[in-house]
C-alpha cells in the first residue's frame, strides 16, 4: 500500500527550533553573565573560551589520549561484564541447580552500588587500568545478568511446549527460540549496563587515574581550570548520549519483529 506523505517538511524546522530554543537561551544567558563580569572570568568562563580550550585539547592530542583511554576501559570492561553477565543470567534461568547455587548470593551482592566497591577494588588491583576495567565490568555485569535471567524466565511456557512438541534439539532451541524471544529485554539490560559502566568509570577516573576523561576533569579542578572541566563535562555528556542513543537504535533494529 502506498504510504500517504504526512507531515509537511516545513513544520519540522520550527519544531526543532522550539526544542533548541531553551538550551540556546540558557547558553546566551551564560555568555551574557560571563561577559558582564559579575563573577570573575575564571569562575564563569565565557563559552568561546570553553570552545577554544576544547579545540586546543583536541588539536594537541590531549583529548584524544584521554578519550581513547576512557573508551578502551569502557569497551573492554563492558565486553567482559556483559558476556559473563548474559551467560550467568541465562544459566541461572535455565538450570534450577545453578539458580539455587548463585541466585541468593547474586541478589545480595546486587544490593551494593558498584561505586561502593571502588575502594576495595583499589586495594586489590591498585590504580592500574585493570582496576577501572573491573569497575566497568562489575557495573555492566549486574544489569545484563538480571535482564537475561528475567527474559529467559519470562519466555511463555507455550513456547517451550511447542519446542517439546516438535522435539526440537537443544542447539536450535536456544538459537531459534530462546534468542529471539529474549533479545529485546537483554538489549535493554545491556544498555543499562553500558550506562552504569560509563557512570562508574567516570567516578573511578575522578578518584584514581593517570588518564581518562574523569582524570582530565579532576586535573582541571585541581589547577582551577574551569574551561577544561567544562570541556570535560561536555565530552562526557556527549559520549553518554551517543552510547545510549546507539544502543537504543540497535534495540529498535533488532526488535523490529515485535511491532511488525
Amino acid at each position: 500500500m502506498p504510504m500517504p506523505s504526512r507531515g509537511p517538511a516545513p513544520s519540522r524546522l520550527p519544531a526543532m527550533a522550539i526544542r533548541i530554543a531553551p538550551i540556546a537561551g540558557i547558553l546566551i544567558l551564560w555568555e551574557i553573565a560571563a561577559l558582564s563580569g559579575i563573577w570573575p572570568r575564571q569562575v564563569l568562563v565565557p563559552l568561546e573560551q570553553v570552545g577554544a580550550t576544547l579545540l586546543a585539547l583536541a588539536s594537541d592530542g590531549e583529548l584524544a589520549r584521554h578519550l581513547s583511554a576512557s573508551l578502551y576501559r569502557l569497551a573492554s570492561g563492558f565486553l567482559v561484564g556483559s558476556v559473563i553477565g548474559v551467560s550467568t543470567g541465562a544459566a541461572m534461568a535455565l538450570s534450577r541447580n545453578v539458580h539455587r547455587l548463585l541466585w541468593p548470593t547474586f541478589s545480595c551482592v546486587r544490593q551494593v552500588p558498584v561505586i561502593a566497591f571502588i575502594p576495595l577494588l583499589i586495594l586489590f588491583f591498585d590504580v592500574e587500568d585493570s582496576f577501572k576495567i573491573v569497575v566497568v565490568a562489575m557495573a555492566s555485569f549486574f544489569p545484563s545478568a538480571l535482564a537475561t535471567h528475567d527474559a529467559v524466565r519470562d519466555i511463555p511456557e507455550s513456547h517451550r511446549e511447542v519446542a517439546r512438541l516438535y522435539r526440537m534439539p537443544t542447539a536450535p532451541f536456544l538459537v531459534r527460540l530462546i534468542l529471539p524471544a529474549t533479545v529485546p529485554q537483554v538489549l535493554t539490560g545491556l544498555r543499562l549496563g553500558l550506562t552504569r559502566g560509563w557512570l562508574s568509570l567516570v567516578a573511578a577516573e575522578l578518584l584514581a587515574a593517570d588518564s581518562g576523561l574523569g582524570q582530565m576533569m579532576e586535573m582541571g579542578r585541581q589547577l582551577f581550570q574551569i574551561d577544561v572541566v567544562l570541556a570535560g563535562v561536555f565530552v562526557t555528556g556527549l559520549i553518554g548520549f551517543l552510547l545510549d542513543n546507539s544502543m537504543v537504535r540497535v534495540e529498535r533494529h533488532l526488535s523490529r519483529w515485535r511491532t511488525a
Partner: peptide, 26 residues
C-alpha cells in the same frame, strides 16, 4: 514541557559524578 524537557534531557546526559569537579570549583 517544551521549555524544560530539552534542558533536563541535555543535563541528564552527563553522569552525576561527572558534575563533581565543576560543582567543587563553584
Amino acid at each position: 514541557d517544551r521549555t524544560a524537557s530539552p534542558l533536563i534531557t541535555v543535563m541528564r546526559q552527563v553522569p552525576i559524578l561527572g558534575w563533581l569537579p565543576l560543582v567543587a570549583l563553584w
